[in-house]
């Protein structure tokens, strides 16, 4: 039997995948804690940013550097628009959690299928060549992966800064902590939610662009990021905004380390088995805080 390969490439890839998942997990956690919805509709935001980048580069002909800010704006706007047009009504009415879950999944599915119908189910690329990259720890990490890692760390710091140091950010924290109290001291909850969605939309768009630079744009690209993000939140918990990021990193490592010595077909079983084990042994998440879920069945 050949000796097991070096663990380093798997560590590197695992960390990279983890940080990639962490962005969507962060966005989802932001909304979950503040607004109280598990928002699968972030998949629609992801798709919006992805297709916007495609359109701006291939359709309009902008260079990538110019297209990226445009896509970020479009993604953020989509998130806020979805909040105003769809979720706000349900939130105001105090809709129970299962209704909002159904609504957000429906938003995601509808977007996916509408794109499939209106544009095409084909995959398109806006970067056709090999992405430049560096070799580290025995494996090659390309700029998209490095960008994702950088963006997640920046996003984490940025979200923290925004929430702790700016006015609108403070309202987000206040509402996340205790909505009634925040309302009581005059915080405009609707506007706080708007900011939350904007922030989450920005983070998801920042995740989508390097992802699709690497693997192309088609209507189905958002499925994995969204569900892996949920798994990351389950693993990490919601205690602080750091927790889902840590959970995401652990999940990414689980995906890759699982394959280090076992055949690749075990990848999903091991990774999801990990999720299951956390759920059974420590349901509030490894780092705590999942009990902040509001449950009104």
């Amino acid at each position: 039997m050949t000796p097991p390969p070096s663990i380093l490439p798997f560590l590197a890839n695992g960390l990279s995948l983890g940080l990639s998942i962490s962005l969507v997990a962060l966005a989802m956690a932001l909304i979950w804690r503040t607004v109280g919805i598990i928002d699968f509709g972030l998949g629609a935001v992801y798709l919006a940013a992805a297709y916007a980048t495609l359109f701006l580069t291939k359709g309009v002909g902008l260079p990538l550097a110019a297209a990226i800010p445009g896509a970020l704006i479009i993604g953020t706007a989509t998130a806020i628009l979805l909040y105003w047009a769809v979720y706000r009504g349900f939130i105001r009415r105090g809709s129970p959690l299962f209704v909002t879950v159904l609504v957000s999944i429906s938003v995601f599915m509808a977007t996916q299928n509408l794109i499939s119908a209106a544009i095409s189910p084909q995959k398109f690329y806006f970067i056709d060549t090999i992405l430049p990259g560096i070799t580290v720890l025995g494996t090659r990490l390309n700029v998209a992966q490095l960008a994702k890692m950088g963006v997640s760390l920046t996003a984490l710091a940025g979200v923290a800064f925004f929430c702790l140091r700016t006015g609108p950010g403070a309202t987000i924290l206040a509402v996340a902590d205790n909505k009634r109290l925040a309302q009581g001291v005059g915080v405009n909850v609707d506007r706080a939610y708007g900011w939350t969605y904007g922030l989450a939309g920005l983070v998801v768009s920042a995740a989508a662009i390097p992802d699709v630079a690497e693997s192309g744009v088609d209507p189905f690209v958002a499925i994995n990021p969204v569900f892996l993000a949920l798994a990351a939140i389950i693993i990490g918990g919601l205690g602080s905004f750091r927790n889902p990021v840590l959970g995401a990193v652990l999940l990414g490592l689980a995906f890759h380390l699982a394959v280090w010595v076992l055949p690749a077909s075990w990848q999903e079983v091991i990774a999801y088995g990990f999720v299951l084990a956390v759920l059974v042994a420590r349901p509030q998440g490894l780092f705590g805080g999942l009990n902040i879920v509001r449950e009104r069945a």
Binding site: T2, P5, N13, A264
Partner: peptide, 21 residues
């Protein structure tokens, strides 16, 4: 030889192993 799930997001793990051979 390495297997992967349908429509995987990522094939790095599998390909890394294949390339070892």
């Amino acid at each position: 030889s390495e297997g992967h799930p349908n429509a995987p997001p990522d094939l790095r793990a599998q390909l890394t192993k294949l390339l070892e051979a």
